[in-house]
Amino acid sequence: MKKNFLSRLIIASALALTLVFSIFTSNYAKPLLNAETMRLANILYENGRYSEASQTYQQLIEQGYIDSALFYNLGNAYYRQDNLSKAILNYERAAYLSPRDENIQANLAYARGQRLDQYDTKANSPLEQWTQTISTKMTLNEMSIVALVSFWALAVFFILYNHIHKPHLKKALRYILTFTLLIFTLSVFTLGNRIYIEKTYPTAVVTASSIDVVSNPGEDGISQFTLHSGAKVILLETRGQWAHLSLPGDQFQGWVPINTLEKVGL
């Protein structure tokens, strides 16, 4: 009776997990209808026609293709046109979609190294720091799956624990349960914090070559400091034609015209 139940439970869990993976990993990718368009853009790039290449990549993005390779190539095309801010913006987007891609990270770091504003983007708290580190390793969807899978594992191990009576197996399961619980707590905590940060502190890139950050929105604002093309800032709020931004660490805040920034998030 018990054996029957356990084997059914294991099979059911395995099936459910397979379903989760098949749903979340297999897809959201359409067959490449516009492969030729991207191939054309790549040829334009390789022949030095960067402006046309960037327009073509942009067209694909506007058609709804959200692929890290597209943003990366677009970033390269902008970089070749000496448009550092747009290059950084698109590398940032590519890195958001594929955080572990070495080429994207390399080009992003290279482009960042050429910005005039070389301020520290170190996080304030260890929690933020941890979230930042994880964000450079996993996408939001991957983190969501880790949290869900660890929850499933926790449930399955808990049920097994209640059905197994052999002391040595029970002891082993107790360790496994503790470990799974730790992973689950950490993943949910990190996921929650990341969602909070992405919602509350969306990032943007300065697209103007140089912009005075002023104390209040409007013409009478007093200049606080100057930011240059490619600087990454945190967008606190927008009001009319003005955006309220802060530098990492919240120590410096100010307003700039909204058209001098572009949000990284799509």
Partner: peptide
Amino acid sequence: ANDIQHIKAVPEMLKTASTPLLKSWLY
């Protein structure tokens, strides 16, 4: 590094915009 790295080839599957998992009822 003295220059950016080269562009990527056309991927087998070009991903399209999708609803994030967190907004899916199934999730």
